[in-house]
């Protein structure tokens, strides 16, 4: 489903952030990308999400290269993916409902469809009872659940998560992991970047380790 072929990325000449990355992810996979800070995990996700472009190499999605995709097509591709970031990226002065609805509103869905879908998704992450609350009133763990709900409300085929548990305590971390496993069970492919090797070992899913921009296992 997703292939990275000899992918290199540099932000400045002579300094490669990613070196010769070769990765193949199948539909329905749950793959951890691990490694210390600065290993290139975020950059790798950014390349898939087209926040950044590859310096060299190819990224194929369902056999089609997205490395040189026209900028106007990027939003349409992003709608088929979901992304969860460590700093949540929520609109703190808006309600839980409004934050999740944003992903559907940009597609021009009807209000009744948006309401139905958002409430359904919030039930999946156990937040439906807080749909009217401003996100700034929520705990970090709950805020991350809102971010996950926003990412999955469109039924993405691929969910990217960049250190989604970085600011969370162990209880919230396990809750979040359980939600990701639940989403994965529906068939959504998950790419989960974390520096927390202990978490990876506990969950027991496939993993790829990055160090200084290279895959080392």
């Amino acid at each position: 489903m997703l292939q990275m072929l000899h992918v290199y990325k540099s932000y400045e000449p002579g300094h490669m952030v990613l070196h010769d990355i070769n990765l193949s992810i199948d539909k329905g996979d749950f793959l951890f990308i691990t490694g210390p800070s600065g290993a290139g995990k975020t950059t790798l996700l950014k390349l898939i999400f087209l926040e950044e472009r590859v310096t060299k190499g190819q990224i194929l999605m369902d056999g089609t290269s997205i490395s040189n995709i026209h900028p106007s097509k990027i939003p349409h591709l992003r709608r088929r993916m979901g992304i969860v970031l460590q700093d949540f990226k929520l609109l703190l002065n808006r309600t839980v409902f409004e934050n999740v609805a944003l992903s559907l509103e940009i597609l021009g869905h009807s209000k009744s469809y948006v309401r139905k879908k958002v409430m359904h998704t919030l039930r999946e992450v156990n937040l439906s009872h807080k749909f009217k609350i401003l996100t700034k009133r929520l705990s970090y763990g709950e805020q991350q659940k809102v971010a996950i709900a926003r990412a999955m409300v469109n039924n993405p085929f691929l969910l990217l998560a960049d250190e989604p548990c970085a600011y969370l305590d162990s209880h919230s971390t396990h809750e979040i992991i359980a939600i990701f496993e639940h989403i994965n069970a529906w068939g959504t492919t998950i790419l989960f970047a974390t520096h927390n090797q202990k978490l990876v070992d506990t969950v027991g899913k496939k993993s790829v380790r990055l160090n200084q921009g290279r895959i080392i296992n």
Binding site: P75, R78, R79, I83, K89, L90, L91, L102, I106
Partner: peptide
């Protein structure tokens, strides 16, 4: 800026 960035993340087009 924050709101615009979030909109880009969820796939909003530039026109939107």
């Amino acid at each position: 800026q924050e709101e615009l960035e979030i909109m880009r993340v969820v796939g909003a087009t530039n026109l939107f």
